[in-house]
Every structure is written in C-alpha cells, then in structure tokens.
Amino acid sequence: MPLCFYTAAMPEPNSAQCPLCGQSNQCAMAAGLAPAQCWCMARPVAPEALQRLPPERRGLACICPHCARPVPAAADMIEHPISEELPCPPTTSK
C-alpha cells in the first residue's frame, strides 16, 4: 500500500520539493495529476524514511523516490577488501 502523505488541504509553497533533500519529489498530486500517476503508488516507501521527517513537516509534501528507499544498516553493507597489499612507507633511521 502506498504511503504517499501529500494532503491537498494542506498545501505548502514547496510541495513539489522533498522535505528531506530539497530536490523534486516527483509527486503527481503536487503537479496537479491524478494520485494513481504518482511513483509512490507503484513503489514502496520505507517507514523509516517517513520517520526521518520532523513532525511539523509531515503531511505537507511527499518525499522523493531516492529518500523513500530504506537506508541499509551498517551490517548489511558490503565491505570491499583491498585486492593488493599496499607497500609500507619507507622508514628513515639515523
């Protein structure tokens, strides 16, 4: 179920901007189109993304598709090992 939270009754001057990053939120409703045309009707919005919004900003503008993605936990991130050993810096001894 989409989690679009744009409320036509509560417009804000920047309702086409993502309140998290300031970029275009690509919201169909903010552009005057039907809600069914919005990206959030076909793609999930991570609940933690909505929780990052300050309470006073909720319900005023949709977040963008990029900010709507879940943020991977540190344990889920892939660590890329160094493929070759780096040489030790030369030492100078007197």
Rank of each mutant, 00 (worst) to 15 (best):
C4Q: 09
C4H: 02
Y6K: 11
A8I: 10
A8F: 13
M10L: 13
M10S: 14
P11Y: 08
P11F: 09
P11T: 05
A16F: 06
Q17W: 01
Q17M: 11
C18I: 07
P19E: 02
P19W: 02
L20N: 02
L20Y: 01
G22I: 01
N25L: 07
Q26D: 10
M29D: 04
A30P: 03
A30F: 04
L33G: 05
L33N: 11
L33P: 00
A36I: 08
C38G: 09
C38H: 00
C38W: 04
C40A: 07
M41P: 00
A42W: 03
A42D: 13
A46V: 06
P47E: 14
E48W: 00
E48Q: 07
A49M: 01
L50C: 05
Q51L: 12
L53M: 01
P54Y: 00
P55A: 15
E56N: 09
E56I: 04
R58A: 15
A61R: 03
I63P: 00
P65S: 00
P65F: 05
H66N: 12
H66M: 11
C67K: 01
A68I: 06
R69Q: 15
P70W: 02
A74Y: 04
A75V: 14
D76G: 13
D76T: 08
D76N: 08
M77C: 15
I78K: 11
E79L: 13
H80K: 11
H80T: 15
H80A: 12
P81R: 05
E84W: 08
L86A: 15
P87C: 06
C88E: 14
P89C: 13
